[in-house]
Structures are given as C-alpha cells and as structure tokens.
C-alpha cells in the first residue's frame, strides 16, 4: 500500500485518503464553448508524466494537492491548496442577476 504525505497530518497509508481527481483550472463558465466545457467536465488529461491531483485526508477532511508521476507512480510532493488558490474567486453576475443580489 502506498504512503501519501498530508501537509497537515504527515505520512499516512493511502487508504486514509480520498482521491479528488486531476486538478485543472476551470474555464470561464460563461465564455467557454460547449466543447471546452464538456472537455473540462468529462475529459482527463491522463498524461504520462507529472500530474497534479486533488487528495483529501478523510479523517480531518483536509484537501490538498499532490504532484505525481503517473509513469513511476511516485508522489513527488504534496502541498496545501492555497499554493494555487491564493485569493477569493468571484463570478461575474450577468446584468439580470443584479436583482437577486442584495
């Protein structure tokens, strides 16, 4: 069984974790073409090489990211999500939305 190092809890058996899928940035949900959006939702890069993945330490519900080499199955490093997500994300309301906002 593999080991995975949680940035908060340290090294644990991988059974303590939930896989959260490949990380890739969400395209602008209003501007993206249908195809781009479908690819975002349904396609995975599945590349041979280093990928970034979401992992959650189940016991503490802590989400973080891992760089893993899919060829060697080596986990190169793990890091907190705020390394990528540094600030608050907002979605631009369409003009019609203004009424709903207080």
């Amino acid at each position: 069984m593999k080991l995975l190092t949680c940035p908060l809890n340290g090294q644990r058996n991988i059974t303590e974790f939930t896989y959260g899928g490949e990380y890739h940035p969400m395209p602008d949900h209003q501007q993206a073409t249908s195809r781009e959006w479908a690819e975002h939702v349904f396609f995975h890069d599945n590349s041979a090489g280093v990928v970034i993945e979401w992992w959650c330490h189940s016991a503490s519900s802590y989400w973080f990211l891992a760089e893993r080499n899919t060829i060697s199955d080596q986990i190169l490093r793990t890091f907190p999500a705020d390394e990528i997500f540094r600030e608050r994300i907002d979605f631009n309301p369409t003009p019609a939305d203004q009424g709903e906002r207080k």
Partner: peptide, 20 residues
C-alpha cells in the same frame, strides 16, 4: 457533500466555515 463543499471552498476561498 461535506467533502465536496470543502473542496469547492478550497478553490473559492469564501469567508465561510463548514462543519459536518
């Protein structure tokens, strides 16, 4: 649902606390 909430907010970074 709880894990999903936390995962989204790890990205959105809203000023909110979520507890199961």
């Amino acid at each position: 649902v709880y894990q999903s909430m936390l995962k989204w907010n790890a990205q959105w970074r809203l000023d909110v606390d979520i507890a199961n």
